[in-house]
């Protein structure tokens, strides 16, 4: 990606899963290290201090939760993303209580994993999080305001200027909810008087069709019932 690649440690016992993760995460410009056991992973985390750890919950030498706790007991504070068994709500809650920062249930989408990794890294290291930054992120999208482009996997998406402004405005305040009125004011600005709430809904709908992987089930620009819209964190 940029100057210095961030290093990510993947602790996952299954070689096929690990291989796909290494390739997928590596393609995003991160430096990926793989450990197949919890013990090896903890040792790696202690000695090499990666920026982020992806930790599988089932490992041949013990439970991911125990290793998560061990890593925290070592005083390491980097984000830990846990990969849990599907629909295992108990595991999920436990994972967060054990000091993990986020979790994904298997089988997850690589795209979503990468979006989570980015978001965790941004939250932990504050990289380019400023509202004034030229590069913004929304899910797995990269928004370059100077060049007025939105890209996914390096491929540009064809957005209109209004759509780009709408997305960029939401991306400046990830998680914050904006009413349709607020969006009109901030995105349409001087022409605001000519538009109503319906305009926003129509634009959001079109924007989603362009940026969402599955437009029918939006994951980037989210509707908040009765309030408005927000960007997924």
């Amino acid at each position: 990606m940029t100057e210095r690649p961030q290093s990510i440690l993947v602790i996952e016992d299954d070689p096929a899963v690990a291989e796909a993760l290494i390739e997928g995460i590596g393609d995003e410009g991160y430096e990926v290290h793989w450990e197949a056991t919890g013990t090896g992973g903890v040792a790696h985390a202690r000695d090499r201090s990666p920026q982020l750890i992806v930790l599988d919950v089932r490992l041949p030498d013990g439970s991911g939760f125990d290793f998560c706790r061990q890593i925290r007991l070592l005083g390491l504070r980097q984000p830990i993303l846990m990969l849990t068994v599907q629909a295992d709500e108990v595991d999920k809650v436990l994972g967060l209580e054990m000091g993990a920062d986020d979790y994904l249930t298997k089988p997850y989408r690589l795209r979503e994993l990468i979006a989570r990794i980015r978001s965790l890294l941004r939250r932990a290291y504050g990289e380019l999080a400023s509202a004034q930054a030229d590069i913004l992120y929304a899910g797995d999208l990269t928004i370059d305001r100077t060049r007025a482009t939105v890209t996914r996997d390096g491929r540009p998406l064809n957005l209109t200027p209004t759509e780009l402004r709408l997305l960029a405005f939401l991306a400046q305040h990830p998680g914050q909810v904006f009413s349709r009125g607020q969006l009109i004011e901030n995105v349409w600005g001087s022409d605001a008087d000519f538009y109503d709430d319906k305009t926003v809904s129509v634009h959001v709908r079109r924007l989603r069709e362009k940026i969402e992987v599955e437009p029918g089930d939006p994951r980037i620009v989210l509707t908040v019932p009765g309030l408005g819209y927000r960007l997924a964190t």
Binding site: A16, G24, R58, V85, Q86, K106, R109, R111
Partner: peptide, 24 residues
């Protein structure tokens, strides 16, 4: 059942990730 679901889930995860890479 839990083991079976996990055992099925693991190759599915790998398969899905590989398919996503292939798609890309």
């Amino acid at each position: 059942v839990a083991d079976a679901a996990h055992e099925i889930g693991t190759p599915l995860t790998a398969l899905q990730a590989d398919l996503e890479l292939a798609e890309r």
